[in-house]
Design a protein around this nucleic acid. Structure first.
Lengths: 206, 206
DNA sequence: TCGTGGCTTTACCAAATGGTAAAAATTAGC
DNA sequence: GCTAATTTTTACCATTTGGTAAAGCCACGA
C-alpha cells in the first residue's frame, strides 16, 4: 500500500497521486467537500474509484492532503513580506502577489474559502499551528513600521484581513464579479490591481 | 397541498414554513447545499422529514426559497444609498450597514457566499435580473459624485466589490478571524468598524 | 521465462439520503 | 358534536455514495 508508508514512491505512484490530487482540487473547489464524489474525482483523474482508494485511504485523506499542501503555497506571499524592505512597497507587493494568486489559482482559493466558510472542520488546528504564528509575526513587523512612522497607523490585523478579503474576492466570488462586470470583462485585467493599489496606497501613506 | 398554491396560508402553515426556513438557513449555512440533509433540517425544525416535504416540494425548493428571500434583505443597504445625500456619509453609512449585517446575519452571509462560491448554480439568473440593474444604477450614482468632485475618482465597481469583500469577510471567514484575533476577541467589536471607516474615508476623500 | 510484487479492475456491499404512499391524527367550519 | 379538510406519522423505496474483497494484469529482476 503506497499511502502512509515510508518507502520511496515509484514513478507510477507519483504520477497517479498527482493526477488524483489535481482532479480532486478541481472537483472539491467546484462542489465543496460534501458536494464532491469519489466517482467525479475518479472520472476527472481518468482512474477507477477503487484505484483512487488504492492511493488514498479515503475521501477525507484526499481533502486533508490537498489542504495541507495548499497551506504552504497559500502562505508564501505573506512569508515573503520582508521586514528589511521598504514598508510601502513591501505591502503593495504583497497585495499584488495575493491578487495574482487569486487570478492564477482560483481553484485553490475557492477550496480554502469553502473550508473556512464551513468552520474549518479539517483545518482548525492547522490554522492555529501554521497561520497564527506567521500572522502574529507579520503583524508585529507592520506595527513596527507604523511605530517608526513609515506607514499610517492602522490595526495591522484588520489591514491584513482587508488585503485577503479584497484580493480573494475576485476568485471566490468570480461568478458574481463576472456578471457585474459585463459587458466589459476584457477591459478589467488591470482594473482590480489599479484600484487596490490606490486603495492601500491612500490608506497607508502617513 | 400548501406549497405553490394561491390560497391564503393558515396559521399553522405560516408557523411551520417559518420554522423550516429558519432551520434550513442554519443547516445550509453551516454545511452548504449538498452537505445539508433533510433529516438535519427536520431535526433542527422539530418536525418529521415527510412533514417538511409536505410544506416544500423538495430540498432544492427550500434552498431557492431561502435564497430569494435573502436577496431582498441583502440588497436593502445598497438600495438605501441615497443619490441626494452627502456622498461621503452615504458611502460610509453603507459600509456600516453592510458590516452590521455581517455581524447580525452571519448565516445569511454564509449562505449567500456558499452559493456564489460554487458558481451561483441556483442564483445566476437572479443575479442578472435583480442585482445587476441595482449595481449599475448605484455605480452611476457614485460615478456622478466623483465627476462632481465630491469624492476621489476610483472605479465604482471595484469600490463596491471592496466594500462587500471587507465587510462580509468577518462573517464568511469568521472561523479564521476568530483564531487570528485571539486572545483578544473582546476588544474588537469596534476594531473592524474603525478600520474600515478609516480605509474608505482615506480612499474617497478628494 | 518465470515468479513476485506492485497496480488495476470487476463485482460487490452497507449506510445515508431524497423522496413517496397511505393511514392516522388533528383542526376548522358548521 | 360531526364532518371534511388539513396536518402529521409510519412504513417504505430507489438511488447515490464511500468503501471493500478478491481476482486479474503487468512490469521487472533473477
Amino acid at each position: 500500500m503506497p499511502d502512509g508508508s515510508d518507502k520511496k514512491p515509484s514513478r507510477i505512484q507519483r504520477r497517479n497521486r498527482r493526477l488524483i490530487l489535481d482532479a480532486a482540487l478541481e472537483v472539491f473547489s467546484l462542489h465543496g467537500y460534501r458536494g464532491a464524489t469519489l466517482d467525479q474525482i475518479a472520472a476527472q483523474a481518468g482512474l477507477s474509484k477503487p484505484n483512487i482508494l488504492y492511493y488514498f485511504d479515503g475521501k477525507e485523506e484526499i481533502h486533508v492532503t490537498l489542504l495541507n499542501q495548499l497551506m504552504k503555497t497559500w502562505l508564501d506571499p505573506l512569508v515573503a513580506l520582508d521586514p528589511d524592505g521598504d514598508p510601502m512597497s513591501e505591502l503593495l507587493d504583497y497585495v499584488g502577489r495575493k491578487l495574482a494568486m487569486a487570478r492564477e489559482l482560483p481553484r485553490e482559493s475557492r477550496l480554502f474559502a469553502g473550508e473556512i466558510l464551513q468552520g474549518a472542520p479539517r483545518m482548525g488546528p492547522h490554522l492555529r499551528s501554521s497561520l497564527k504564528p506567521l500572522f502574529d509575526e507579520k503583524c508585529a513587523v507592520i506595527q513596527g513600521w507604523m511605530d517608526d512612522g513609515h506607514l499610517a497607523a492602522v490595526d495591522p490585523r484588520h489591514l491584513i484581513f482587508s488585503i485577503w478579503a479584497t484580493t480573494q474576492h475576485y476568485a471566490d466570488f468570480a461568478a458574481q464579479v463576472e456578471v457585474l462586470l459585463e459587458p466589459a470583462p476584457a477591459d478589467d485585467p488591470a482594473g482590480a490591481e489599479t484600484y487596490l493599489t490606490t486603495l492601500f496606497t491612500k490608506l497607508l501613506t502617513p
